[in-house]
């Protein structure tokens, strides 16, 4: 068993959080509030040391006065706290939204839409058994059908009856399979977190496993 007091503190808070599985209680709430406080307390000094110091204070000391403009713009966010001047906070918001969208939209469109469309398109090589293994050819066709039928399911300008309805029905099956895969992965993720805690308890604290 560990003699490290920090391990014992971590064990205490692990059990505080686990106690919620029985029912809500003051120990759980204490641990929850402490986590939020510690996380914020951890971030603030790093933010000050790594961002505000070298990016604002130091350049101003070096007479880079142009920084006053973005600094003032940043302070305008705080105008939201005064209802009479709250409208001033729209300026930094507009600036952030404008630059953020300008940077993100073209690249996101290319990365998440155009490249994905390109990846879905079937080429002669993708369907040729002499170039592509048969299992991959089947996979390519399954993927192609999946994308088309799912997109048709989300096309609501036409009633989902007749042929369109049948194709949309196939799309629903694909969506259900995607939900199933995501749910399976989610279970795996949550169990992994539990395993991590038990590894800590059995290895780091009790020392009963390698």
């Amino acid at each position: 068993m560990s003699h490290d007091p920090w391990i014992w503190i971590a064990v205490f808070f692990t059990f505080c959080i686990f106690s919620f599985l029985y029912k809500d209680n003051p120990f759980y709430r204490f641990a929850e509030h402490l986590l939020i406080g510690v996380a914020l307390g951890y971030q603030l000094p790093i933010f000050w040391k790594n961002v505000v110091g070298p990016k604002v204070i130091l350049p101003l000391q070096n007479h880079e006065y142009w920084l006053i403009i973005p600094l003032c713009l940043g302070f305008l966010w705080l105008a939201r706290l005064i209802p009479k001047y709250a409208w001033l906070s729209r300026w930094p918001m507009a600036f952030s939204l404008g630059t953020g969208a300008g940077i993100a939209i073209p690249l996101s469109l290319q990365a998440s839409v155009f490249r994905q469309m390109q990846g879905t398109m079937l080429t002669k090589a993708m369907l040729s058994p002499s170039i592509t293994p048969v299992i991959h050819i089947i996979g390519n066709i399954v993927m192609f059908v999946g994308v088309i039928t799912t997109l048709i399911y989300f096309y609501f300008s036409v009633k989902h009856v007749g042929a369109v309805g049948k194709v949309a029905r196939v799309g629903i099956w694909y969506i259900m399979l995607a939900f199933g895969a995501t749910f399976g992965y989610t279970v795996m993720a949550r169990v992994s977190l539990l395993i991590g805690r038990f590894q800590f308890l059995l290895h780091d604290w009790l020392g009963v496993i390698d």
């Binding site: 990365a111 490249r115 994905q116 390109q118 990846g119 993927m143 995607a178 895969a181 995501t182 992965y185 989610t186 795996m188 993720a189 992994s192 395993i195």
Partner: peptide, 26 residues
């Protein structure tokens, strides 16, 4: 990535935007 995010990242493997991926504890 965490297992929760793994399914979302598979399309990027297919387009080679990701050259590899480790999904969760597995």
């Amino acid at each position: 990535v965490t297992a929760v995010m793994a399914a979302e990242n598979y399309p990027f493997l297919q387009t080679k935007q990701l050259i590899g991926m480790l999904g969760g504890l597995k």
